[in-house]
Design a protein around this nucleic acid. Structure first.
Lengths: 339, 339
DNA sequence: TTAATAAACTAAACCGATTTAGTAAATATA
DNA sequence: TATATTTACTAAATCGGTTTAGTTTATTAA
């Protein structure tokens, strides 16, 4: 079975490429191709398993029916799950997905954006490093359809789907306060990400709103590429040092996992000695000992809504309605904060 | 900054598209374009941020510098991690990656294969449903470059990178035997996947080789889409029922997680009442209580080697050397099998 | 001095689709 | 009966690159 082209169909049926193309694109009726001819074309195409060359089609149409997805790291279960939902939703609308990881590197992200544009993706979904204002602005100015997810640029008006980082962390902190914890530590990642800033602000707001002081010694922001090593010191210092916190808020799932690992190594009991709580969760947080209370992010909704907004944008590039969605996290109460 | 095309460069510099194209593809020297002209072209292209339309390029060249990746489910951390390593390695060779999930459905897999071919991917990496012999054979007959990962077709000679499922599980079972477990259960997924068959055979071989009988009642294969529900009965039956196994081999990470969840619900102590061991592991298996002993798959090597084989295949379609790699798993001994 | 060769290019075809601007024949209208 | 309209198509341009087969001018060899 050899590959068959539009031209082959046209020749075999003694028709023009035009007629064949129109019919195969479901535009036979509006172009007055007779029912009989339409049937002949459709039958022949099906029998010979015709499939258009998408490169040729894309070149001609200036579109590719492909969505580009840029995430920091596809092997992070959080982004992998988002990718999954994006893929499903995209398929519903007839789009394929090309993905790439930026590794939190702005230069790579820049490169990926342009590489994807060259590949004629019809739109982009970006979980940005948030160090790339320049190119995001260019996309916006060029009126190119895109949606930011997970991270957004507070100073640029764009489509985005993020979660309520502030509210989620405030909620988590209040949960700890409600469980009579009074010296609450905060372990995060050193970063300019607004998401992480908001998580800190949420933590601080919960404290002050409830009449407690924010104690800078209770806050520790670790190096994003060296957090595993730094965690040991952070935990020791906070829990065993002079501070003696009785709870720790972790701002990501991998920090919580890493933190718990250290706590176990040091033989510190959770939650009796110290309670822990995590923003976002891994698949097995319910199996861990103790099961970790976590604020779960709605990855399904994030993926779905991002695609919906994007496809909408692609379809009617004229109507510029910025869609700014802030989704709520959900606190899953388990045992790591006491009963 | 408006988009600039090859034609624009040619016109601006009073040259032909040919000259510009050759120079930009690093073939100026071999085509005797003067150094001076080359410099002018390169400078102009850089200054104006020229980037070729990959659709046009792909159409012309018949290739896309893109690798297609088909996995059962990108949100499974196992495949997500493989995808990550594939992406990195592919980039090293200048390839992008398009991925899609088949959801273990042969019809979807078929559709994805052809959809990717239409998009002119230069090669495919497939973690197949293994229910699609027909299309894999067609790819092979068409001499199209592809590599199977994780799952392969025992009856078709192809490139593949898989792990030693038999040996890995045999090893796991022997570990349990070494820890004085004598009634070893086996919980797997009902499936035609050779990988799962091999895991069962490895388990059985370990038993018989060591003088124990294979007890069919100790083996339970659950429905792949309903394993969570069925797990409850399986565990109850095996551990609390008349069989009273003292250990369970789980053939996937999600089965192990699910099984442990049930054990905890039933208040069954691990490893004192029953030991558990898992083929493949989740990120947090070391944090779970008890930490789960698991046979770790070399996802990095699997991704890397798949890309290397594939790129090699793409580069010299003539030399047909089938690469059949069987990688070894590594047993990470933790506490779920006793000390 | 002239033919052969090399250097430095270019025109036009091509990849495989879509689309614009027609056309010939059949039918309807005046 | 002559003109207008409709039906059912088609030829050729186009998308933006790559590539084949030359061409012109300068240089070298005989």
């Amino acid at each position: 079975m050899k590959k068959i082209f539009l031209k082959d169909i046209a020749q075999a049926l003694n028709l023009s490429k035009t007629a064949v193309s129109l019919v195969l694109n479901n535009r036979g009726d509006e172009n007055k191709i007779s029912k009989d001819t339409q049937k002949r074309i459709l039958d022949f195409a099906k029998k010979n398993n015709y499939r258009p060359n998408q490169m040729a089609r894309g070149l001609s149409l200036g579109k590719s029916e492909t969505i580009g997805l840029i995430v920091p790291n596809i092997s992070d279960i959080f982004y992998a799950r988002i990718a999954h939902f994006i893929e499903i939703k995209a398929k519903e609308f007839g789009y394929n997905v090309v993905f790439s990881s930026s590794n939190e590197n702005a230069a790579i992200e820049k490169e990926l954006i342009y590489s994807m544009l060259n590949r004629q993706v019809d739109g982009l979904i970006i979980a940005s490093t948030q160090k790339n204002e320049e190119d995001i602005l260019k996309l916006k100015e060029a009126n190119f359809p895109f949606v930011l997810i997970d991270r957004y640029y507070p100073d640029i008006k764009t489509n985005y789907v993020i979660v309520d980082n502030f509210g989620g962390t405030k909620n988590m902190t209040e949960h700890l306060l409600g469980n009579r914890r009074r010296k609450i530590g905060f372990i995060s990642i050193k970063s300019q990400l607004d998401a992480l800033l908001q998580r800190r602000l949420g933590y601080e707001q919960a404290l002050t709103e409830n009449g407690f002081k924010v104690e800078p010694n209770y806050i520790n922001e670790l190096d994003p590429f060296d957090y595993q090593d730094e965690m040991k010191g952070a935990i020791k210092d906070m829990v065993q040092g002079s501070h003696k916190v009785d709870a720790v808020v972790f701002t990501t799932h991998y920090l919580a996992a890493s933190g718990l690992r250290e706590l176990k190594l040091l033989g510190i009991e959770v939650p009796s000695e110290v309670a822990i709580i995590s923003f976002d969760e891994l698949g097995a947080f319910d199996l861990v000992e103790p099961p970790i209370t976590a604020s779960k992010q709605p990855v399904d909704a994030m993926g779905n809504e991002a695609v919906e907004i994007l496809v909408n944008e692609i379809d009617k590039k004229n109507l510029k309605i910025e869609n700014e969605r802030v989704l709520q996290t959900k606190l899953l109460i388990r045992k790591s904060c006491g009963v």
